[in-house]
């Protein structure tokens, strides 16, 4: 996995991933702090700053579902961002668990995964 962390005093260009617009962000870092240009909204500025200090991603995957007549997997997501370098560790946890029907969208499947302060939650309701 690539680390986009910025050496101090340099400017890099990033593609903002917050929304489909995909702004090109010019992020520079100096002793005074991090500055972001090119963003069209405040979320973009936040993303740009975070991306060079502690990049994070939301993660989606599936867990083994048992007891359903038609479905074999339950789609899940993290309800908060995960540090980029922890994504594969979280996936390992996701691959370990299984759930039974019925499941509701929003049900917590793994609470506070790896102590990262985020939960893995169901993204689909599967009654049977």
């Amino acid at each position: 996995m690539k680390d986009d962390r910025l050496p101090r005093g340099k400017t890099i260009d990033l593609t903002c991933i917050i929304c489909p617009v995909g702004c090109t962000l010019h992020v520079s870092s100096s002793p005074a702090g991090v500055s972001v240009l090119g963003n069209r909204c405040s979320k973009g500025a936040e993303y740009g700053a975070k991306e060079i200090t502690h990049p994070e991603r939301f993660l989606q995957s599936t867990v083994l579902l048992l007891g359903s007549a038609t479905e074999r997997r339950l789609p899940v997501k993290t309800d908060g961002p995960v540090p980029k370098d922890k994504l594969f560790d979280v996936l390992k946890e996701i691959k370990k668990v299984h759930v039974h029907v019925p499941v509701n969208m929003g049900d917590v499947i793994i609470k506070n995964v790896l102590g990262l302060g985020v939960n893995v939650v169901a993204t689909r309701t599967i009654e049977n």
Binding site: C19, P20, F58, Q60, S61, T62, P75, K77, M105, T123, R124, T125
Partner: peptide
Amino acid sequence: LPQCIHSGFGLNYYGRDLTGPEFAE
């Protein structure tokens, strides 16, 4: 949508970032 388990849906229609299964739900 149920196979599109990634996020990025719903920002315009529901005003929030949803996964495909959530949008469908």
